[in-house]
C-alpha cells in the first residue's frame, strides 16, 4: 500500500521536475519554435475574425487617464535630438523611403498642414497596464500614398531617434495595419504638442496592437519587402532583443 505521505512526496517531486523541465523547455530552440506556433495561430485566427478595417474602441474625453504614463525612453540621449528639441523640432525631417516611388522628406510644418485625425484610444502595455489618451496626427496612409508604396513592399519599418544600448529603436507593421484608418503618426497628445517623454515630435499609433509597436521619436518610415535585413530579423527592437511577439495583437 502506498502511503499518503509517499503520494504527496511523489507529487512534490513531480512538481519540481515540471518546474525545472519547463525552464529546460524554455531554453530549447525547438520547443520555443513550437510555442511560437501559438503566435502564428493567434495572428491567423484574429485576422480571420477581424475585418482589416475594424476600429479599435474610441473613448470620450472624460474617460481619459488623468496622467498618461510615459514608458521606455523618456528623452533620447543624442546631442542631435537635444538640438532638435531645443528649437521645437523646426528642422526635424521625416523621411519616407525604401520601396516607394517618390521618397519624401517632410518637415513638421508640412505635416501640420496635412489632414489630421484625432482619436481617444487606449494604450495597452505588454506589461499589463493601460492608459487612455487623445492623439492627433497624420494618417500614415496619407504619407504612404504620397510616397507611392511599390507593390513589392510588404512591411513598413519605423526608425527612431532613441538609443537602446548600441542600437536605435525600430519597429515594423504590415500593410494591413499601416493603411488602417486609426494608424497615425501622432504629433499631439490630449490637445497639446506631443511631449518629449511620449515621443516628440512624432510617434506611431497603431491602435490594435500592444504598446511596444507604437514607436516613439520616428524619423524614418521605410517600406520593405522583408524584415530579414532589419535588425536581428524579427521586425523590432524588443522582438530581436527579448523574443517578444512581432504580432502584438494579444
Amino acid at each position: 500500500m502506498i502511503s499518503r505521505r509517499a503520494l504527496v512526496g511523489f507529487g512534490a517531486s513531480a512538481g519540481g521536475l515540471l518546474l525545472s523541465g519547463c525552464d529546460r523547455l524554455t531554453a530549447s530552440p525547438s520547443f520555443r519554435e513550437a510555442l511560437q506556433g501559438g503566435e502564428a495561430l493567434s495572428m491567423r485566427a484574429q485576422r480571420l475574425l477581424t475585418d482589416r478595417g475594424a476600429l479599435a474602441p474610441e473613448f470620450d474625453a472624460a474617460q481619459r487617464s488623468p496622467v498618461f504614463r510615459a514608458n521606455g525612453t523618456r528623452r533620447p540621449a543624442s546631442a542631435d535630438y537635444a538640438a532638435h528639441a531645443a528649437n521645437g523640432f523646426a528642422d526635424w525631417r521625416l523621411r519616407v523611403d525604401g520601396l516607394v516611388a517618390r521618397p519624401l522628406r517632410v518637415s513638421m510644418a508640412q505635416i501640420g498642414t496635412m489632414p489630421a485625425r484625432t482619436q481617444i484610444t487606449r494604450h495597452d502595455c505588454v506589461e499589463g497596464w493601460s492608459a487612455i489618451g487623445q492623439w492627433t496626427g497624420v494618417p500614415l496612409k496619407l504619407l504612404l500614398d504620397q510616397a507611392g508604396v511599390r507593390p513589392a513592399a510588404r512591411y513598413i519599418v519605423f526608425h527612431c531617434a532613441d538609443d537602446y544600448g548600441p542600437v536605435r529603436y525600430y519597429e515594423s507593421i504590415d500593410l494591413v495595419d499601416a493603411f488602417h484608418p486609426q494608424t497615425i503618426l501622432a504629433w499631439g497628445l490630449n490637445g497639446r504638442r506631443l511631449p518629449v517623454e511620449n515621443g516628440a515630435p512624432l510617434r506611431l499609433r497603431v491602435e490594435r496592437m500592444l504598446g511596444y509597436k507604437h514607436a516613439k521619436y520616428v524619423e524614418r518610415v521605410e517600406a520593405v519587402a522583408s524584415l530579414a535585413a532589419i535588425g536581428g530579423g524579427q521586425g523590432g527592437y524588443w522582438e530581436d532583443s527579448n523574443d517578444y511577439e512581432w504580432y502584438a495583437g494579444i
Binding site: R208, L210, G249
Partner: peptide, 8 residues
C-alpha cells in the same frame, strides 16, 4: 485584454 479582439 487583446487590443485586436477589442476591435473585433
Amino acid at each position: 485584454m487583446s487590443p485586436m479582439l477589442n476591435a473585433t
